[in-house]
Computed example of a mutant assay.
Amino acid sequence: MLQYQRTGSGRPVVLIHGLLGSHDIFSRVVPLLADEYEVITLDLPGHGGSPLADGVETMRDAAREVVDTLAAAGVQHPVIVGHSWGGYVLAEILGSFPDVPAAAAIIYSQPYADPPEKQRARTEAIARFESEPWDDVVRDLFPVYVADYDPPEIFEELIAITEQASVPGARFALTTIRDRADHSQTVLDHPEIPVLFVSGTDDGAMPPIPLDAPHVQHAETESGHMGPMTVPDELVRILKRWIAGLPSAG
């Protein structure tokens, strides 16, 4: 089971972090949501306080770990929010466990598979994590996740959070990202699950998302990739407005 934290009361909202992150990515978001909702944050396998269990190797395994943890915690039909890699995990949950989420917010992420050049870059990054000092690799790979106008301390905080992950965790995350399925059609095939995409105006890590359907909404923050850290108030306003318009839980 994954390590998780929960606070607040009301409709359950689950937050899933991204590559080399932990629940700490959402430290500014949680108190803003917990005044209205029960907020559950998870550490994905090999990240934060969650070990990478034997046999956990694929994106579907990551999704199953989330689903099993929520079931063990008694969390039923939550609104699930996935950031970056967490958005890919959430897209897999939509595909493999569509009865679990009441709604899905894929933030600073997208439902498409990696193109070949991105897959090659993931493989190269795995090799680097296995052969080079951790700090050297993350400081080389992570600048794309911050905008030019973000305070330098945001980048340093992000780097510090990555230190909670492990090399096997990094290999697992990058492998699942590299090999993930395209779930754009999955989103369209489940009109019973409302989906929100939140993008950053200056997110250099993510492509545009042209998906259009009655159950799909789009929003944008004035930010780079790390909106939960840099614009938590703006992000939470978007999430609360969207959640308020969802069908009642039950």
Rank of each mutant, 00 (worst) to 15 (best):
M1P: 14
L2M: 15
S9C: 07
P12W: 07
V13T: 00
V13M: 00
L19E: 10
H23S: 15
R28W: 02
V30T: 10
L32I: 00
E36P: 12
E38P: 08
V39K: 11
H47I: 04
D54G: 15
E57A: 11
A62I: 00
A62V: 07
A62G: 04
D68Q: 14
A71C: 08
A71E: 13
A73K: 14
V75M: 13
H77C: 08
V89S: 01
L94H: 07
P98C: 11
D99G: 15
A104W: 01
A104P: 09
I106H: 02
P111G: 11
P116N: 05
R122T: 08
R122S: 08
E132L: 13
Y145F: 13
P152I: 15
P152R: 12
E153Q: 08
E153F: 09
A160T: 15
E163N: 10
S166V: 06
S166I: 03
V167G: 10
G169D: 01
G169Y: 01
A170K: 09
A170C: 06
F172W: 01
F172T: 01
I177K: 05
Q185C: 02
V195L: 02
L196S: 12
M206T: 15
P208Q: 10
D212W: 11
H215I: 02
A219T: 12
T230C: 06
P232N: 02
A244V: 06
A249M: 09
